[in-house]
Design a protein around this nucleic acid. Structure first.
Length: 551
RNA sequence: GGCGCGUUCGUCUAGGGGUUAGGACGCCGGCCUCUCAAGCCGGUAACACGGGUUCAAAUCCCGUACGCGCUACCA
């Protein structure tokens, strides 16, 4: 992956809309305002974050505002509980919002459940202007019409038979016990054309659009109405959202136009697809993704860490498609952001690593891809690795410490040897929680666990192993100073003197002192452990060898 | 079914009439080496299919296939 070169922006990648929209250019008069409207589901998933990120970047790029609007039309009781993890996820990622929950703003309220009056007023206006009507058809009557059309192989369009022409008729329908809803009176001829900033010119025949219900009998309003009204009321200039809304845009345009709104710019993002497929990532199929091999690997890695720190790894949301997963096991927000940025967007053919400021500087709608992109946790890990390598020792210490504490391996004070450990660890700690894989530094000598296979292979199987180890232990006892370089010289001298290979002793020492067959550089490890612990551990290992039936 | 959108290595992508179709992740091999990582070097691998237009098509047009979305008193 190459770093970001200071290179020219692609010609034409400017703010101005493709096909001559309403054209606010660079430095235009209109303030850029974008929004993200999460439903309070209790978790933030990857696809949603990507959408939010693009909105956020676009707003920041143009000195605009990023608005969070809570899509809680179901007016649930446990709203706070369901919203908190989402806000927390954004905070962790550093995606800050200028208006919305907690921060307020001039365009509130930011909860759709509190905006009923605004919606009702809009519905009334639409009716007054002849763009909507009260309708008293029963679901059965509607279904019958639909079936009839289907049987005749004709396109279904509501006959508007139970539409109330005036108040008097409405009263009559109601007297019959009918329930009234408000429907859009969609045009039945012509086309709706608009420019999508990602897809270019798109057009839909109006006659394909149904007379969508915008208000239920109980007065509550439906999504399309709410969305169009809110976007206008909140002065949203650019609607950047998932592709699934592309087909919904005409009806929203109809509503907006009917209400006399100025239309926002639209940009429909491709889906984030399931790993290894083009199927849209769904929040309902979490369990399924774990069957994907790469997901399973990432998940298993996370699960090992979660178990050590008492994080509920069984929770449904402990899943690599949920942001919380990454936070819990110690990924860096920057890595996730960088990865997500490149999921459907690219600057050129080589730049992969972006600082946040660079993301903001270079982001443009025009370079968003229009095909779905599938989520690849392996590649995310590669970004994580990159970011982790750039971190200094102090930053790593801060990152890792909470994990040691949560696992009961550190108190309020950081262990003195943590610095040297992190230094010796080099690039082996990919995510902060990986520190727990090297817990052998933190456990008491008497509690050191041995990897049975490694123990057998390095200490039991080679007939000379125990003897050599015992001899080398005695050298260690008198080694001075007990430092990496000196210890290496000591071991090399020992190897020459005994006429053996380095491998014949070093692995035995490793298993004896760390319990594992793999680890950091051996001499750094010995220095960190210190003479006393090294000798104690070797003694313990030797005692164990002698108890193990040889041969 | 109708309409809309999409289709370049396994994955993310660059390229938008003439390229040995470039990069990244993964994978494979090598180097380094006390193991494992990291690093370095090398390799594998793609224009969905069929017609057109053109001297020339991955690139433009049409069709087909496949995928996804919309077609709700879901969002």
């Amino acid at each position: 992956m190459s770093r970001l070169p200071l290179r020219k922006r692609r010609a034409g990648a400017s703010l101005s809309p493709r096909g001559g929209g309403r054209g606010e250019g660079e430095g235009g008069d209109l303030t850029v305002r974008t929004r993200f409207a999460p439903s309070p589901t209790g978790y933030l998933h990857i696809g949603g974050v990507r959408t939010a990120l693009f909105n956020w970047l676009f707003a920041r790029r143009h000195g605009g505002r990023f608005v969070l609007r809570v899509d809680d039309t179901d007016a649930r009781r446990n709203l706070d509980e369901a919203l908190a993890p989402i806000l927390e996820g954004f905070r962790w990622l550093g995606i800050d919002w200028d208006e919305g929950p907690e921060v307020g703003g001039d365009h509130g309220p930011y909860y759709q459940s509190e905006r009923g009056e605004v919606y009702s007023a809009a519905v009334e206006t639409l009716i007054e202007r002849g763009h909507a009507y009260r309708d008293y058809a029963t679901p059965e009557e509607l279904a019958a019409e639909r079936e009839a059309a289907q049987a005749a192989k004709e396109r279904f369009l509501y006959s508007r038979r139970w539409r109330a022409a005036d108040a008097a008729q409405a009263v009559r329908f109601e007297a019959e016990g009918r329930q009234g809803v408000v429907r859009l009176e969609m045009p039945r001829a012509g086309v709706c054309r608009f420019t999508d900033r990602v897809r270019g010119e798109v057009e839909f025949e109006w006659a394909r659009e149904q007379d969508h219900v915008i208000q239920r009998a109980d007065g509550t309003c439906l999504y399309h109405l709410a969305s169009a009204v809110d976007d206008h009321e909140m002065s949203i200039s650019h609607v950047i959202r998932a592709e699934e809304h592309l087909s919904n845009t005409p009806r929203q345009i109809f509503i907006a136009t009917g209400l006399g709104y100025r239309l926002p710019e639209y940009a429909h993002l491709p889906f984030v697809a399931e790993p290894g497929s083009k199927v849209k990532l769904s929040k309902r199929k979490l369990a399924k993704y774990l069957k994907n091999e790469e997901f399973a690997r990432i998940h298993e890695h996370g699960r090992r860490i979660a178990e050590r720190i008492g994080h509920p790894a069984e929770a449904e949301t402990f899943n690599p498609v949920i942001v919380e997963f990454y936070r819990a096991v110690g990924y860096l927000p920057h890595a996730l952001l960088n990865y997500l940025l490149l999921l459907g967007w690219s600057l050129d053919d080589k730049t992969e690593i972006f600082e946040i400021a660079e993301m903001i500087e270079h982001f443009s709608l025009e370079r968003i891809n229009s095909a779905p992109a599938s989520f690849d946790p392996q590649k995310l890990l590669a970004f994580q690795d990159q970011q982790m390598q750039r971190l200094g020792l102090d930053a790593k210490r801060e990152l890792v410490l909470p994990f040691l504490r949560a696992a009961g391996l550190a108190g309020a004070q950081a262990p003195a040897e943590l610095g040297p450990i992190l230094e010796a660890a080099g690039d082996r700690i990919k995510v902060a929680g990986d520190i727990l894989e090297f817990d052998d530094f933190f456990v008491a000598d008497a509690e050191l666990a041995y990897d049975p296979a490694a123990f057998d292979k390095r200490l039991v199987e080679p007939a000379e192993a125990a003897g050599l180890l015992a001899d080398f232990r005695d050298r260690l006892a008198g080694a001075e100073p007990f430092e990496a370089a000196a210890l290496e010289a000591l071991m090399r001298g020992f190897v020459a003197e005994q006429d053996i290979k380095l491998g014949q002793i070093i692995h035995a020492v490793r298993v004896a002192t760390t319990g594992k067959g793999v680890g950091f550089g051996m001499f750094e490890t010995l220095e960190i452990l210190g003479r006393e612990r090294v000798l104690a551990r070797i003694d313990r290992a030797l005692a164990r060898v002698s108890r193990t039936p040889g041969d």
